[in-house]
Design a protein around this nucleic acid. Structure first.
Lengths: 228, 228
DNA sequence: CCGAACGGGGAACTGAGTGCCATCTTGATC
DNA sequence: GATCAAGATGGCACTCAGTTCCCCGTTCGG
């Protein structure tokens, strides 16, 4: 029922446009009653994003499962990848929807409210993890916004390629960028080893032609910690 | 006319709630015709944000005035402060509107689309400034999102205080946080001196206590490239 | 005095979303 | 197999936002 409504809706949306399609048109094509449409989708916009509610629930469950051992920023990046997974499940559908939302202001506004709820979920999680730290809520909001922006940047680049590129790679690359920016995770203390407690500097030598990640790796080793 | 409609609308919104107030109620109280309402405000939501259109125009003008000498991140922070200025012009109005938007989902969605347009303006500016740099558009999107998130964090904290706190201080503090994260000041660059072009190694010295991102930044500068 | 331009007002229409109730299916119980 | 309860569906009428079309009064130039 839900599926038949979504199928009918998208056939009409692609055929004659979103605003030129009325709910009556959709239910006529799907062969169901008008009232049933609004039972499954609280609004006409919802039929365009039929699986976000489920995905949002998955994300909150993922963030609330108590597995708080890892770096919080890494955790929200993984949470963001859940959304990418939902898009990647149905590439053609996602690309069609992307074209729709790009040119219909009403759908763009609706998508913003959906994205906002994801961002709130991430920010709430980070606020919990950053609790007590000075400017914890500020940092939580900023990191959440940055993660969402990076995710969307990678996602859109994939969508613009009609699903040809590697979605995971694009988003991973974007999220890595954010993690590099916010990576320090200050409390990952310098933890001076026994004996060199007085040392204040560390010297690293690297071949100039070495790839950046290799250099970073050497730095991390020298400093006795990781950027994660 | 515009002002009388806004005044009538807010009287009713605060009295009986946004959704319980129809456009007919507003025009009846303002003593104008229903058609005139929609001449001044394309939708019922617009009457709640009567000055954002003007502010957005100011921001795009500010970003497009060709004064690109300063640090791009600082520039978008200044642009964000323009929005704060608009809120601070009418504290009581801003606080009332904040209470409304917080509890009416439709208004929150509308506000999101407004904020999105500000963010797009900032991101477009940064894309121009970061053009050519690898991952320039990604960085532009992320910085814009972070700046907006920080601005909104400070703004909301001020609004929650009923306009009692210092709005400028709250937002300045939040924006300073973001500027610190995103390449605040170019680190002292141990640029290779003339004559050592053939050298294959580079030596980097860093304080052990420095945050990882700071170290990475210095490495990048030393190697004469970025991780982007 | 006339008429064109224009800002405002009103009536009627479309379409989204809701409330209420009738109907139909399903499945458990006796 | 009959019956009843519960849930799913359809139909109808209603509210309200937003639009279209047209009318009216004012103003200003000829």
């Amino acid at each position: 029922m839900r599926d038949s409504l979504v199928a009918a809706a998208f056939r009409l949306f692609l055929e004659r446009g979103y605003e030129q399609t009325t709910v009556d048109d959709i239910v006529a094509l799907a062969g169901v009653g008008r009232r049933s449409f609004f039972r499954y989708f609280p609004s006409k916009e919802d039929v365009v994003f039929p699986d976000h509610e489920r995905c949002l629930a998955e994300m909150t469950a993922f963030l609330g499962d108590g597995d708080d051992a890892a770096d919080p920023v890494a955790r929200v990046c993984d949470a963001a990848r859940l959304v990418l997974g939902m898009y990647a499940e149905n590439p053609t559908f996602s690309v069609q929807r992307y074209r729709l939302t790009r040119q219909v202001p009403g759908l763009r506004a609706y998508e913003l409210s959906v994205v906002w709820r994801y961002e709130r979920a991430l920010a709430e999680y980070l606020r919990g993890r950053f609790a007590g730290r000075p400017d914890g809520t500020l940092r939580a909001d900023v990191v959440a916004a940055a993660v969402v922006a990076a995710h969307n940047n990678g996602l859109r680049s994939w969508l613009r390629s009609d699903g040809q590129e590697d979605a995971g790679a694009a988003v991973d690359h974007a999220l890595a960028h954010v993690r590099l920016v916010f990576a320090p995770d200050p409390p990952a203390a310098p933890a001076p080893a026994a004996g060199d407690t007085e040392e204040d500097v560390v010297v690293v030598v690297s071949r100039r032609g070495a790839p950046m990640w290799r250099v970073v790796q050497e730095i991390e080793t020298a400093l006795g910690r990781t950027s994660d």
